[in-house]
């Protein structure tokens, strides 16, 4: 065995070591939480905690609201970020870097700072909307911006936006038709990936919903942690399952994409 072969094998061993370490780091707490959630009954492994969660009307109520906030956030996000990213790519490339910087701000501004500034700004006339769900959805849209915008931008980068737009124009199409019939369908997978990431963010978000006093899944889960032992663990597993299901949907839709050029899952951080 020469030196190159030894080095090659050594590199492979280290690659496996780090991969197994990463898998353990991610899955061990999850397995532990899952096993713990099955121990609601003494000395028996059962799904009792899960039954309790699904039978609790508060769970359904809060979770439904979180789903509603998530869906509204996705709709608003798509309506704002698709035309913005498209316009910047097509007509205003000089604004690409400043806009990308702005979209990343939710990563560096703590949610608690953000929510206090929202409450302060919108709790007095003329913008007294602190109690309105509009503010919560707007805030969620901002929070999901890094995921949604970069997913859409990645999708736009994968197609020849300028030429497709010009082809549409030369065939008589206006901006609306081009955007909705040519551009949107061709970045469908990118939008879906941004949408599901946004959905996952909204489902797990605690601070905005708590301080803006709106029903949501995460505040309810926090409340439950203070009251019960096994049900919060069951809910954590449920939320993981929902997020993974969402990712599975993205993969499934991406595989069925007719365009053939759009199979990437964009915008993951």
């Amino acid at each position: 065995m020469n030196l190159t072969t030894v080095k090659k094998h050594g590199g492979k061993i280290w690659a496996w070591f780090w991969m197994i370490l990463g898998i353990l780091y991610f899955f061990l707490p999850l397995i532990a939480t899952f096993l713990f959630s099955l121990r609601a009954k003494l000395n028996v492994l059962s799904f009792t905690a899960y039954q309790h969660v699904f039978n609790d009307s508060n769970f359904v109520y809060n979770f439904s609201y979180s789903v509603l906030w998530g869906v509204l956030t996705i709709i608003v996000g798509v309506l704002i970020f698709v035309p913005t990213a498209y316009l910047i790519r097509l007509k205003l490339p000089q604004f690409r870097i400043p806009v990308e910087f702005i979209t990343m701000l939710p990563f560096v501004i703590p949610a608690i700072v953000y929510v206090f500034s929202l409450v302060r700004t919108f709790s007095q006339p003329p913008l007294l909307i602190v109690d309105s769900p509009v503010l919560l959805v707007a805030a969620y849209t901002v929070l999901s911006m890094p995921y949604m915008y970069s997913a859409i931008d990645t999708g736009l980068r994968a197609i020849d936006v300028r030429t497709l737009t010009e082809a549409g124009q030369s065939l008589g199409a206006g901006w609306g038709t081009i955007l909705f019939r040519i551009i949107l369908p061709n970045i469908r997978v990118a939008i879906l990936s941004g949408a599901f990431l946004s959905f996952a963010i909204v489902i797990g978000e605690l601070i905005l919903a708590q301080y803006l006093v709106k029903p949501a899944f995460a505040p309810y889960m926090t409340y439950l942690i203070q009251q019960k032992a096994y049900e919060p663990a069951a809910m954590a597993i449920i939320s993981f399952a929902l997020t993974w299901a969402a990712m599975g949907v993205i993969q499934f839709i991406g595989r069925g994409s007719g365009g053939g050029e759009q199979s990437q899952i964009a915008g993951g951080h």
Binding site: D160, L164, A167, L171, G172, G259
Partner: peptide, 17 residues
Amino acid sequence: NQRNVGMIFQSYALFPN
């Protein structure tokens, strides 16, 4: 889109969807 001209591009520019 107000001119009645047809355009053919080097990269074909067919709509992938």
